[in-house]
Design a protein around this nucleic acid. Structure first.
Lengths: 220, 220
DNA sequence: GCACTTTTTTATCGATCGCTATAGAATAAC
DNA sequence: GTTATTCTATAGCGATCGATAAAAAAGTGC
C-alpha cells in the first residue's frame, strides 16, 4: 500500500532481476483463445503452455494458478467486448438492446476466433472448480442481466420505453435470447440466421405510444 | 443375427453365468444424473461408479466405456423427455411449439433433478472427446431443430400457419429461445420468469388471417 | 458332484492432471 | 568484477484420469 517517495509512479524503475522474455498480454490472449474453445476444465496446463509459448513455471509466476489465469482471461475477454460494443451510449434502451444483440450475433459467429461465447463455456465447464470461481462466474452472469435491466429502467425514466414495461422481465427475455444465440453460434448456425433472430426478437421490444412520444419530445 | 429355433424369443432362456447384481436401468439413471450435473469431461469414472453403486469393471462390462455410457445416457434422456412431452400430437404447430417451450421451462427448473439441459452441458463439455461422439451430439442438435422446422412446415400445409411463414427461420428462433432457457434455468432463474419468456416469445408465432382460418375450417 | 460361463471384487496399469523444486541464465545494483 | 534478484528450462512430484488383469464368487448344464 505504501508508495516509495523517491520513485516516480509514472516512471517505474526497471525491475532488478532477469526480464520476462514473453509478452504477458499476448500470452493472456492466447490463453483466452484456448479457454474459449475448450472451457475451463477442458483446458490443461499443457494446452495453455503450448499455446502461450511458455513453460509451466513462467505461467505460474506470471498468472498465479489455473483458476486465477482463467478469471483474468474472463475479465480481459469481457472488457474488450465491452469496449467493442459501447451499447450504453445509444440514446434509447431499444437501440442499446438491439446493438447488443447485433454485436452478439456477429461475435459468436466471428471467423477469426472460436465460435460461441466464453462465458457460456465457463458455466458448463466449471462444475468441479472451486466455489470461489463458481461464485465469481455466477456474479458476472447476474451482473450482465442487471445491466440490461437498469438500461431498460433508464429508458422508462427517459420516456423512450413505456411506463408499464417490466424491466426485469424484459431483461430476462433478452438475456435468454442472447444466451441462446451464443449456443447457436457455437453450434455453427450462420450469422445471417442469428441476425434474423435478432430482428424477430426486437419486435417484442415495447414501443411507447406515438402520442406520448410527442409529449416527451415537447417537454425536452 | 440368427435366432435359435428352440428358444422362444418372448421368453429368453436364463443366461449361463453369474447374474448381474445391479439394476442396469437404475444405474443408467444414476449416470444420467451425474452427467447432467457435471457434463461429460467433468464427470470421472469414480464419480460414476460411486453414484451407480458399482465397481469399474461392472461399468465397463455393462456399458462399454465412458463415451458409450454417455451416449446411452443422452439417448435415454432424450427418449424419456420425448415421452413426457408428446408435442407432435398437438393439433396445430403453434400449440406444439408452445407446449414444447412450456415443457422446457418446467424441465430446466425441475426441483427433483439437476437444473438446465443435459444436451447443453454435453456440447460444452466434450471439447476433448472423440470426433465420433462430437458428431453424434451435433447430429442430435441439428435433428432437434429439424423437428421443429418440419412441424412448422406441416402447420403451413395444414393451414394453421400462414403460407408466407419461414419454417427454417422460425425453427431457428424458437430453438434459440429454448437454448437460452436451458442456460437461464441452469443459472437459477425462476420457473415463473421462464414462463413469462415463453409467453413473450409465443407472441412472435405468426397467426393466420382470421378470414383464411374460416375458409380452412369450412374445407375440413 | 464337476465343468463352464459370467459377474464380482481387488488391485492395480500407464498416462495425464495441476503444480513445483532445483539449477542455470540474464539482468540490475554495488 | 561480485552480489542480489528474477526469470527460464528441466525434471519430476503426488494425485487422479480412463481402463483392465486376475482371481474369487455365483449362477447354469450335465
Amino acid at each position: 500500500m505504501k508508495q516509495s517517495a523517491a520513485s516516480s509512479p509514472a516512471k517505474p524503475r526497471k525491475p532488478r532481476g532477469r526480464p520476462r522474455s514473453f509478452d504477458r498480454d499476448a500470452a493472456l490472449a492466447a490463453a483466452i483463445e484456448v479457454f474459449w474453445t475448450k472451457g475451463f476444465e477442458g483446458t490443461s496446463i499443457s494446452d495453455l503452455t503450448e499455446a502461450m509459448g511458455i513453460n509451466p513455471p513462467s505461467l505460474y509466476a506470471a498468472f498465479g494458478d489455473k483458476e486465477r489465469l482463467f478469471l483474468e482471461a474472463i475479465e480481459s475477454y469481457e472488457r474488450s467486448r465491452g469496449d467493442d460494443c459501447p451499447y450504453t451510449t445509444e440514446p434509447t434502451a431499444r437501440a442499446s438492446i438491439e446493438r447488443l444483440l447485433t454485436y452478439m450475433a456477429q461475435e459468436v459467429t466471428g471467423p477469426d476466433h472460436p465460435r460461441g461465447c466464453m462465458m457460456m463455456m465457463a458455466e458448463a465447464t466449471s462444475a468441479n472448480a472451486s466455489p470461489k470461481l463458481r461464485k465469481a462466474l455466477a456474479d458476472k452472469r447476474v451482473s450482465a442481466r442487471e445491466h440490461l435491466r437498469s438500461r431498460i429502467k433508464r429508458g422508462i425514466e427517459e420516456g423512450d420505453v413505456p411506463r408499464d414495461a417490466d424491466p426485469t422481465a424484459l431483461a430476462d427475455f433478452f438475456s435468454t435470447v442472447m444466451n441462446g444465440m451464443a449456443m447457436m453460434g457455437r453450434d455453427g448456425v450462420s450469422r445471417r440466421s442469428l441476425m434474423a433472430t435478432v430482428e424477430r426478437a426486437m419486435q417484442l421490444f415495447p414501443e411507447v405510444p406515438a402520442a406520448h412520444k410527442r409529449r416527451v419530445a415537447a417537454a425536452a
